[in-house]
Design a protein around this nucleic acid. Sequence first.
DNA 1: GTGGTCTAGACCACG
DNA 2: GTGGTCTAGACCACC
Lengths: 136, 136, 136, 136
Amino acid sequence: MLLSIDPRSQQPIYDQVVRQIKFAIASGVLQPGSMIPSVRELAKELVLNPNTIARAYRELQADGILETVRGVGLRVQSKARRRCVNEQRELIRARLEQMIREASTSSLAREEVEAMIDRELDRFFSPSSSDSTRTK
Amino acid sequence: MLLSIDPRSQQPIYDQVVRQIKFAIASGVLQPGSMIPSVRELAKELVLNPNTIARAYRELQADGILETVRGVGLRVQSKARRRCVNEQRELIRARLEQMIREASTSSLAREEVEAMIDRELDRFFSPSSSDSTRTK
Amino acid sequence: MLLSIDPRSQQPIYDQVVRQIKFAIASGVLQPGSMIPSVRELAKELVLNPNTIARAYRELQADGILETVRGVGLRVQSKARRRCVNEQRELIRARLEQMIREASTSSLAREEVEAMIDRELDRFFSPSSSDSTRTK
Amino acid sequence: MLLSIDPRSQQPIYDQVVRQIKFAIASGVLQPGSMIPSVRELAKELVLNPNTIARAYRELQADGILETVRGVGLRVQSKARRRCVNEQRELIRARLEQMIREASTSSLAREEVEAMIDRELDRFFSPSSSDSTRTK
DNA sequence: GTGGTCTAGACCACG
DNA sequence: GTGGTCTAGACCACC
């Protein structure tokens, strides 16, 4: 479980745990059917309060991502993968919408926003086949 | 002062006020040198407690956006425009970066992300002259 | 009346007027027995609210610095000079005390404070006859 | 936390708290990395409203002196010490400059000012090795 | 337990 | 009239 937690972020820690586990599932790092670390184990590993981990796991159960195996622990549900992918996609879309909305009511021109977007895309993605820059 | 406040948002009300005023200055709706509505006035208009407005104004002062004219009210500082534009630009860039970073570590392909971006751009911006869609 | 007023200072404007008039008297620029500008006149000259000037003059009367000459205006009292000098001296001493007290409870060593003092003294005073620096 | 608050001072209470905490950090009484008293605790100790303390702490956060550890409390930032020392030094220098400037435009001679300074230095500092008085 | 936000209302200084 | 400070008390999220 390689989770990178930033305790100084505004985002609640339990929420960071939730999201990163969902991401790990969406990207295939965590396979449906596999067990996840116990509350105490993960808490010790991340140097966090066990309550924080417990809350994260509780949310993941409520979201239908994890399921309890009595006497054993928590397991990634079989349908978790698709749910995580969808949720992640929606999350990204929502972020995008908010960002673009603010940009559109700002003093920035569409071209400027597009330039910023392309710059960030190139930073994080390997260039796509034929279109790392737009044709104008 | 047309501020749209959402009291149910996660974002604190005072912060919504701060940001919207900065946006209004960045976009030129609020001119440097002009006075802004009094604490009591804006509080009444938005149906908020004057202290909430006062806190927003205090932050704007600390940020060098507003300045007090004692016994008179608060005025938009002369250098506020550039500061607001810069800050807004940086805010948008940071949002963008976070979004793209998450997208890149997700299961989404670059092409999918680009498609989402173009869809949102077209929703909020009037289409740019020649490039409302990317050439592939 | 050459008063330099800084409307952005924390110090109230009326107080700046009071103090600067006292300084002018202490330094001999304003002579006991001479008339001072009318409220309206000075307000216009300094681009201030007449109430502000009126309040300053009121305080100066209460302090025994100015006196009314009925039907004519306000005049610098005969004993004003000595009072202003004393008051100014006390003001400076109080400032000094506060400053030194803070410095003493800080992490600064006496030698550092002395060095700062000498630097400022040299900036504002022409060097004294034989002792612009300390002998060690 | 031995803070001496003077509710009758012109200086706002929250500001006295801010400054005294900065001083405590600058002088090493409060160590970077250590927790500070909770809002409620300090409020009770100083017989003040918790909001007043909260405001002071908020300013210290904005100044990069404190940081929140969510659900736990507030901690002195690692770089706080240097910041506080610098700020304090600058504060003292500014006070000094204002004081000397006023003294220089007054009727006081440099020698008189120097005598006042030495008197105050000796009141608050233990005499320095060889130079408790100036040589003339 | 912790800090953070918001409301409500009082009082003050300034112009 | 204006902003600024302070008190009081409620509610919330987080750990």
